[in-house]
């Protein structure tokens, strides 16, 4: 009972010890299932080659080494497109895509959240409706649109569609509804125009929502492999490079593990940093009937 009170919020109504204990055991078991592959990725990246192929396999590394990372640099230094190029491509797509999305989504969310005007309701209804089907539905016409605009084989083909990701607009709008109208009225009386209100009143107040949009958008772009849009090797992403390396099979197991860790660690770190803000935004995520 005492031990349990360390991990549990003290004194709650309607709680029996036995059921709490069972539920926490369940949580722990599934927690292990969730965490195991991630722990495994981390350990693999530091395993020397002989430990990677030991039988029976071991989860934890015995003699950690950085060899895999050195091999990765050496391998990619020799290839036609250097590793730094893949990293730069991924960074470009992710940073421009995420920042642009936050900017456009919040600009669109502000009038939808705070004012009623011709078309505002139906536009938002369409956005909510579009949450109900996945991007696969639009993949075919999207390809044609891209080829008509001439964006095939450019980074724009990945970045631009991601700017108008409907989930971001939805969450941003729900969060902005919390901003008190009095604040906006006061700014208007002081002579600020709409753009100024958006930029210097609304935006600073929705910082938690920026981080939430970031945590949803970032992993998607970070994990993008260029899809069907990018063909040139020098425009491809880090995730694509990982695919090529792991296709090398057993000989590339160590290098593959190293790059997998690199890819995994960035979004997870971002989430750790932004967790409390994300939770604040998600509390407003509800859908009304």
């Amino acid at each position: 009972m005492r031990m349990l009170s360390v991990i549990r919020t003290p004194r709650r109504l309607n709680r029996s010890f036995a059921v709490s204990f069972l539920l926490f055991v369940l949580l722990g078991l599934f927690g292990c299932f969730m965490a195991l592959p991630l722990i495994f990725t981390v350990n693999n990246a530091f395993k020397p080659l002989d430990e990677l192929f030991i039988f029976p396999p071991r989860l934890f590394v015995n003699n950690p080494t950085m060899d895999n990372f050195f091999d990765l640099v050496a391998l990619m230094g020799n290839s036609w497109v250097p590793l730094s190029r893949y990293i730069a491509n991924t960074l470009l797509i992710t940073i421009v895509g995420t920042a642009g999305h936050i900017l456009l989504a919040s600009a669109a969310a502000y009038p939808l959240a705070k004012y009623r005007f011709r078309g505002s309701r139906s536009l938002f209804a369409i956005v909510v409706l579009s949450l109900m089907f996945s991007g696969h539905v639009t993949a075919i016409p999207n390809y044609m649109v891209m080829s008509w605009i001439g964006w095939i084989n450019t980074h724009a083909s990945i970045i631009v569609p991601s700017l108008a990701f409907p989930l971001g607009l939805f969450l941003m709008k729900q969060f902005m509804e919390q901003i008190p109208d009095a604040l906006l009225e006061a700014a208007k009386i002081d002579g600020a125009n709409e753009y100024r209100i958006y930029w210097s009143i609304v935006m600073p107040n929705v910082k938690p929502a920026w981080l939430t949009l970031m945590i949803l958008q970032f992993p998607m772009l970070w994990g993008s492999d260029g899809g069907n849009f990018i063909y040139s090797e020098n425009l491809k992403t880090l995730h694509y490079a990982l695919g090529q390396i792991t296709a090398g099979g057993i000989a590339r197991a160590g290098v593959g593990a190293a790059i997998a860790l690199l890819l995994m660690i960035v979004p997870i770190t971002l989430f750790i940093i932004s967790q409390s803000s994300v939770m604040q935004t998600m509390a407003t995520s509800g859908m009304k009937d």
Binding site: A107, Y110, V127, T138, L163, A164, Y195
Partner: peptide, 24 residues
């Protein structure tokens, strides 16, 4: 002003989500 604020998002949204659904 509201339409101006909405337009960048909505143009991309219509171009890559709404119109493609209709096209499909």
């Amino acid at each position: 002003h509201y339409y101006v604020l909405l337009s960048p998002f909505m143009i991309i949204f219509f171009l890559f989500t709404v119109i493609p659904v209709v096209c499909s």
